[in-house]
Amino acid sequence: MKTVMVFPERCIGCKHCEIACAVEHSKSKDLFAMFSEDILSKPRIHVEEGEDLLTFPNRCRHCNPAPCIEVCPTGAIKRDDETGSVIVEYGKCIACGMCAIACPFGIISFGKTYEIVIDRDVNVKCDNCIERQKEGKEPACVEACKTGTLVFGDANDLIKLKRQSVTRNITSSPDAKEEPVIPENIVLWRELNKKYSHASKY
């Protein structure tokens, strides 16, 4: 199973994935042309601030079974068999919001898309860039991510990466010199951010 794994400790909040997502789902697929299109394409991935000024790129996890598919009264949400992605058939969506209620991650958003000419909002959540995937490309947000926060690949392979890092940490002797997973300056920057955020709270 291929998935987009998130390594949130690497996210610096640049929102690069958001823009790339909007461009990918625009009619022209061009940043400069996008803003003069009749229907403005908007990001389907959301980088929002959490505790300590930390950020997390939140996108559809393409669950299986997917709560949104289960609750959709019109059968507008379905699974693409080839990629396993949860996709929306816009014409069938009645914008009732049941999917948003059921979604455990809060990533459903309603809006317009050039792909269907109707004067109402529909569920325009992440479609896992299935068109790109079928061309052998990564989802646009993954391609845009320059820090390695969003990584596309086989779920178990990516989890193994994480596991290996845990194993290394647990087994390494205190005086062992090893390549840091997060660069020193970024660790420092995060610590300072944490202090800023606490100072403004208390």
Partner: peptide, 22 residues
């Protein structure tokens, strides 16, 4: 690729330390 959309559109300001603002 793809390069930063904020930068390409010119809507990122780094001229003071309250920023960068986008």
């Amino acid at each position: 690729q793809p390069q930063c959309g904020y930068g390409q559109l010119g809507i990122c300001c780094k001229n003071c330390m309250q920023g960068p603002c986008r």
